[in-house]
Simulated assay, not measured.
Amino acid sequence: MSKISNFFRNVASEMRKVSWPKRKELTKYTVTVLSTVVFVAVFFFVVDMGIDAIINWIL
């Protein structure tokens, strides 16, 4: 049981050392991630539609 409590004590100690982002940084990072995800999704959608068109043209 002391190993478990020691583990959580160490976790709490490490969490205090973490450098958390400020609200402005967090917003900037969130917008960057979401825009990248949307761009990649649209890119793969277009590529998929292109491959589908090529396959339908061949068949």
Rank of each mutant, 00 (worst) to 15 (best):
N6T: 13
L26I: 02
R23H: 03
M15A: 02
V37G: 10
F45N: 11
T32I: 13
K3D: 03
L26H: 04
T27P: 02
M1A: 06
I55K: 04
I55Q: 03
F45W: 02
F43M: 05
G50V: 06
F7Y: 06
F43H: 01
R16C: 02
S2Q: 09
T32D: 14
V11Q: 00
T30N: 07
P21S: 07
W20H: 11
K3C: 02
K17V: 00
L59F: 15
Y29M: 03
T27Q: 15
L59H: 12
N6F: 14
M49N: 11
N10S: 09
K24Y: 05
K28S: 06
S2P: 09
W57V: 14
P21Y: 03
F45P: 09
M15R: 01
I51C: 13
I54F: 05
E25H: 03
R9P: 02
V33H: 12
N6I: 08
S35H: 10
M1H: 10
N10Q: 13
F44D: 08
K24S: 15
F44N: 09
V37R: 14
F7T: 02
W57D: 04
A53P: 04
V11S: 00
P21D: 04
K22W: 03
D52E: 11
E25V: 01
T27G: 12
D48I: 14
W20G: 08
G50C: 08
V33T: 15
T32N: 10
F43I: 05
A53G: 02
F39T: 03
L59D: 10
V46L: 08
D52Y: 15
N6R: 06
V11K: 00
S13C: 02
S35I: 14
L59Q: 06
L26W: 01
F43G: 07
K17R: 08
V46S: 04
F8E: 00
L26E: 01
K24L: 13
S2N: 11
T32K: 15
S2M: 05
S5R: 08
R23C: 02
I58M: 06
V33W: 11
M15S: 02
T36N: 11
F39V: 04
N10E: 08
V42E: 13
M49Q: 10
K22Q: 05
D48E: 12
R16S: 06
L59G: 12
S13I: 02
Y29E: 09
D52V: 05
A53M: 10
K22H: 08
F7S: 01
V46K: 13
D48S: 13
T30H: 05
A53T: 07
D52N: 13
F39G: 09
Y29Q: 11
M1S: 09
K3T: 00
V33S: 14
L59R: 14
V31S: 09
W20I: 12
K17Y: 04
S5W: 08
L26T: 01
T27V: 12
V38P: 02
F43A: 12
V18H: 04
F44Y: 10
F45K: 05
N10I: 07
V37E: 05
I4P: 01
F7P: 01
K17W: 01
F8K: 00
